[in-house]
Write a protein that binds this DNA or RNA. Structure first.
Length: 493
RNA sequence: GGCGGCGUACCCAAGUGGUUAAGGGAGAGGUCUGCAAAACCUCGAUUCGUCGGUUCGAUUCCGACCGCCGCCUCCA
């Protein structure tokens, strides 16, 4: 089996993944750019988190212990330039008459709920003051890590790559780019960029490329902290990722993920900050996901005029995991054209897998060994996942496996399928548990009994009426050889 | 102006320098079924935006062109 391979934006090549830790049971460190919590995360955002989750699962599939950190941006992300714009969180807070903390908490809760619905496993919340023993993995908030940011800024300043002005502390890009080759990631030399051409920038900056590490003298900004020796203010956007990545995972990490849009500015700046502070490599593998497109034109009930969110799908009676499956149907580095029809098509696949699992005999599930022929599928699946996360192919293998089981009338593939699902995250096991419960509300039980009677009496008119009634209550009704099957529709999580 | 990407059947979407270009959805026909659903079987691109070039051979490499898109300003 080929080792895990991943496309590294630093080299623009698919490379074998070699973590820093070369022990027999290696750990991989993984930092993901997380949400800015001032609006609901739209489906494009969620695609990125499905990607992050899939990558984490693929690493674990390959035997790595993953230390995963995701940040939550709850301060410092401005609507335009660092010094000209408005803080996104505060803008929403003012609009809604809430405090920034309330806004952040509200959207964090929503984000977590959406991730849960998509079966995205987030790292546990970081305890704010666990300075002495930072956790191995963490979901961490920028506002809980201000001291760490100040520490990195001080390091940068100590190495001479920061300067302080009345409006803030800036990173000296001109000074840094010589030794660093800044622009490697985006393949853009600074002279080729038109930075500052289309927007006002602070007169304090020595160069329009410079960016704020710490912003000073913004009395209207609600969230402010003391920077000893510098003054009261708040951090620039990029510094949080450098600081939290280093704090929780170390000065050099294995993988750093984010959207393609982060390459030219955010990640270039992160590299500059981190490497000027520590003097050595910040990230070994940068991975970037492509966008979900076509959302603006997607005609979903409530989404007119904005990007659709997961709730819009639920409103259309589409299960969230159908969206996850849609994402898996395209490579993470390819744009994926979103449409309601595309999600519905994905939902068919989800139902197909669920239906197979539902029909499995308990003794097949309990059986410790799968049919011998399933092994070839597992190999193909692993191969696909290790080839730069080729989820479309892996998914095809899973579907082919199920089709082969049907065709050969040999259903002994549950363990293989469960292994696939540990990577795909479609919660097939949850489906089995759900079915095992088999408990229905009294009203549904009554309707079921009545319908069985009607069918036995060949009163099909009544039978069809009862089916319609049961379905209206959110259940599916199927007549099989073994009799009537009623199950909850998989809509709301 | 600069950087980057994409164009594969009605739709979504993999893939490869050379035997039949994955998989799914939709569609057509059939089996099964009280009906429906599910499942199964069969069919479906002589062709990979266009035109050139390299090659014994290109959808895959190179060039030009056309079309679409992202970024260079916040953005997954």
């Amino acid at each position: 089996m080929k080792p895990f391979h991943i496309f590294n934006s630093l080299t623009r090549a698919v490379e074998p993944f070699m973590p820093l830790d070369t022990s027999p049971t290696p750990t991989a460190t993984f930092y993901s750019c997380g949400p800015t919590v001032y609006l609901p995360q739209h489906l494009g955002n969620m695609r990125a988190y499905v990607f992050v989750d899939t990558l984490r699962r693929a690493l674990e599939f390959n035997g790595y212990t993953v230390r995963h950190v995701m940040n939550i941006t709850d301060v410092g992300h401005m609507t335009s330039d660092e010094d000209a714009g408005e803080d996104k969180i505060e803008k929403t807070a003012r609009a809604e008459g809430k405090s920034p903390l309330e806004v952040a908490n509200f959207y964090i809760a929503q984000f977590k709920r959406d991730c849960a619905a998509l079966n995205i496993a987030l790292p546990i919340d970081a305890v704010p003051d666990a300075v002495a023993h930072p956790p191995q993995s963490a979901l961490c908030r920028a506002t809980d890590n201000i001291p760490a940011m100040i520490g990195v800024i001080e390091q940068i300043a100590a190495h001479g790559y920061a300067y302080t002005t009345p409006s803030g502390v800036y990173f000296d890009v001109e000074k840094w780019r010589g030794p660093s080759g800044m622009g490697r990631l985006s393949r853009q030399s600074l002279s080729e960029q038109h930075a500052g051409q289309r927007l006002e920038h602070s007169a304090d900056k020595r160069s329009p490329h410079d960016f704020a590490l710490w912003v000073l003298n913004q009395p209207h900004h609600m969230m402010q902290w003391d920077f000893p020796g510098i003054g009261r203010g708040y951090p620039g956007w990029h510094i949080e990722c450098s600081a939290m990545s280093m704090r929780y995972l170390g000065e050099t990490i294995d993988i750093h993920s984010g959207g393609l849009d982060h390459i030219p500015v955010h990640h270039e700046n992160e590299i500059a900050q981190s490497e000027s502070a520590t003097g050595h490599q910040f990230v070994r593998y940068f991975v970037h996901n492509a966008f979900l497109t076509g959302m603006a034109g997607a005609k979903i009930s409530k989404s007119a005029g904005r990007f659709p969110v997961l709730d819009d799908l639920v409103e259309e009676k589409i299960h969230p995991l159908a969206f996850r499956l849609l994402c898996l149907g395209a490579k993470y580095r390819s744009e994926l054209a979103f449409s309601i029809d595309a999600v519905r098509a994905a939902e068919k696949n989800l139902n197909y897998l669920n239906e197979f699992v539902r029909c499995l005999q308990p003794r097949v599930i309990a059986n410790a060994h799968d049919a011998a022929w399933a092994g070839a599928y597992e190999e193909r699946f692993h191969e696909a996942m290790n080839n730069d996360l080729n989820t479309p192919q892996a998914l095809a293998v899973a579907l082919e496996l199920v089709a082969a089981a049907y065709r050969q009338n040999d259903h002994r593939i549950w363990h293989t399928l469960r292994i696939f699902d540990m990577v795909l995250g479609l919660d097939l096991e949850g489906r089995i548990k759900e079915i095992a419960k088999g408990v229905f509300p009294p009203r549904i039980n009554r309707l079921m009994t009545e319908r069985e009677k009607a069918r036995a009496a060949k009163d099909f008119k009544r039978s069809d009426e009862l089916r319609a009634e049961i379905e209206l209550s959110g259940y599916e009704v199927k007549d099989t050889k073994a009799g009537m099957v009623v199950m909850p529709k998989r809509v709301a999580p």
